[in-house]
Nucleic acid binder design. Structure first.
Lengths: 269, 269
DNA sequence: GCAAAAGTGTTCATCATACACCCATGT
DNA sequence: ACATGGGTGTATGATGAACACTTTTGC
């Protein structure tokens, strides 16, 4: 892999590597466009939601699409640009948190604090998935907690941006390009990972009650859990040092619940 | 995602989609090279092995590298080339089974018969991972059964191709580019999936004994299992219809073992 | 007091683990 | 006969599902 030598000419391979590289000329073969795509999830009112943007131009004009953008590759030779993950973070910050172009301040801070989860999902590259030209999309998914969701709404200027309920509201078939397939892969991944990882905490406020945690699990798995059994299952996390008791209580119209805080230590990716 | 409109000019967006597309002109922005990479595993003599190719030219001349090649994108506009998976299959067939260029006969047949397992792994795109130019590699892993391993050896013509023991023999640091990272991701994925999927059967002959299956699991997980408990654990597959009894016995220097056959039905991806 | 959710207790089936033991074969 | 791995039996402990029950709040 990497650039196979056969197509990259000018191989005087008896020289040393430094000489080889300074003699190296980049030949212009057809290359695909590479973009990063984002499936951004949140859970509000016990409901899993995904962020979509309405397309303003052709193709798929008027359809809802996943946010995304070009992978920044510089001139692709001397200056090779930014990493895929960095591109995804920038996209997330620009399009969703309204950071100015080129900045990823908000998303970077939230990522560092483990308030949001970002992970590469799958790479989609079927020919003609974009009618304009060959596009390879490195899809990611992100989990953002509901308390920063208002930030997201603020970011939508000219473009129409909306949260869609994955379970109901959403007309999967109506999505632009192959984005329903990407979304499906995202849902599948989150459903699979929530059982053995700690990603659920990225869908909660800094402190949370056990039933709020349960609510997130139920929204994602689409099933209901026995409150007692669920409590026991996650109380183990306290003895394991994954979560810790936090001051205050969650006051509702019924018995107030203890709240907990997620401790970064022992993080399961 | 897909081609964001901003960089693709000539948007007369009041026309219909067909007109838009026929007016569409592909602008030449810097694009990365996209390759597919392969981590090809097999298990021989209760040992997990990976296939590597010695690099003949700079960069990383003389180092061992994972096999791979360009993603075929045609002219990237009117003719958009072949899918990522197809590229991976072709690479696998050409470089490893010695199929003639452009053919993927052998690999396609084996894939169809579920004799080999091929799956996308992760996409690597760190800047400067290839010093020549920006390269995005869509890495895959493949599991090939030991009885077709001789085929692989036959395919190595000019290039030096070898199976390396993942546990011992292999000097991870000495690998070309970031291929040790890719290999590591491959090992991690296989270790994770073998417990709940059926991928192990792609590392066995068409019929196998329970202890041969155990041997594959042990090689991949790097631990030993109690023969009795392991047997019970996998005999359940027989009642579940995932495997079935096959005629004949595996004759060794000790008590002959029953052999089984993997039934495609109920395949867990 | 009543509803409703927090939180605890108990039972039962399932399953992984450890380990003892018998069976069939080549030498 | 005996070493070796195939194959079975069994006791124990951990875990998860089902569900009854108590506690604490708002109304």
């Amino acid at each position: 892999m990497n650039e196979p030598d056969s197509k990259l000419g000018h191989e005087s391979n008896d020289v040393d590597e430094a000489t080889f590289l300074s003699n190296y000329r980049h030949r212009d073969y057809p290359r695909p466009s590479v973009t990063v795509g984002l499936v951004i999830f949140t859970v509000v009112d016990a409901d899993l939601k995904v962020l979509l943007i309405k397309r303003l131009g052709h193709p798929s004009k008027g359809k809802w699409a996943l946010p995304g953008g070009f992978l920044e590759v510089g001139d692709a030779v001397k200056n090779q640009g930014e990493s895929i993950e960095k591109s995804a973070i920038r996209e997330l910050s620009e399009e969703c948190f309204g950071d100015p172009e080129g900045s990823s301040e908000t998303a970077e801070r939230l990522l560092k604090d483990r308030r949001i989860h970002l992970e590469q999902l799958y790479t989609f590259g079927t020919p003609y998935r974009d009618p304009r030209c060959r596009v390879v999309t490195v899809a990611h998914y992100a989990l953002v907690p509901p308390d920063i969701v208002p930030l997201v709404k603020a970011g939508s200027d000219a473009e129409e941006v909306r949260w869609f309920s994955v379970a109901h509201e959403l007309d999967w078939e109506g999505l632009a390009f192959d984005h329903s397939e990407i979304l499906e892969k995202g849902v599948e991944r989150v459903r699979g990972k929530i059982d053995y990882s700690n990603i659920a905490f990225s869908l909660l406020q800094p402190t949370f009650s056990i039933s709020e945690l349960r609510s997130v699990h139920e929204a994602i798995k689409g099933e209901v859990y026995d409150p007692g059994n669920f409590r026991r299952r996650f109380k183990r996390m306290q003895t394991d040092g994954i979560i810790e008791s936090a001051p205050g209580k969650r006051v509702t119209s019924t018995k107030p619940a203890k709240v907990y805080r997620f401790v970064g230590a022992g993080y399961v990716e």
